[in-house]
Amino acid sequence: MNSPSATATQSAMGSLHSPIDGTATIELEVNGVGVTRRVNARLSLADFLRERLDLTGTHLGCEHGVCGACTVVLNDEAVRSCLILAVQADGSRITTIEGLAETDHDGQIISIHPIQRAMQEAHGFQCAFCAPGFLMTALCFLERNPAPTRAQIREEISGNLCRCTGYQSIIAGVETAVEIMAADRREGAQDA
């Protein structure tokens, strides 16, 4: 699969070409770490994260862009990683569920993110297969809108499907996260 004839050519102008079913080299930042990999052109970002980087926390529910389970953050925006090719993500900055908690060098969790804490407190999920997508969606949403109404929360998470909960607990979890993050900000402001 990696024969020379099937590898990418990169012109001086920054263009990138891979022949049919060939590969190209991409460079991107994932959870704060720079990675360079040669990937097949048809590899989705989701499969790239799961298979090439072993970041299996990102889940695939439908692989056609409806369920939202595979949502990750790309340059500060929530996106469906099943609807992005890895080659399209070349040069971008990605955050996955594995990057949400604060970890040490060995990947051990030092402290979980307020959204994770909130979802645990609110019993947000059951099987939690969909949870990574919801958490990444909520992360981007609360960055943009730190004090949303319940209606806005409903609207914003409506692109993610959950089959277990009926959503009420997830909405409660986002509301709890809003409270925790607001309290953290107040505390931060006092400290400063």
């Binding site: 102008m13 920054g14 263009s15 990138l16 070409h17 022949p19 079913d21 060939g22 052109a41 090719l85």
Partner: peptide, 9 residues
């Protein structure tokens, strides 16, 4: 499978 092209201009 397909061939991927990312033109720069």
């Amino acid at each position: 499978a397909f061939a991927y092209h990312r033109p720069a201009s």
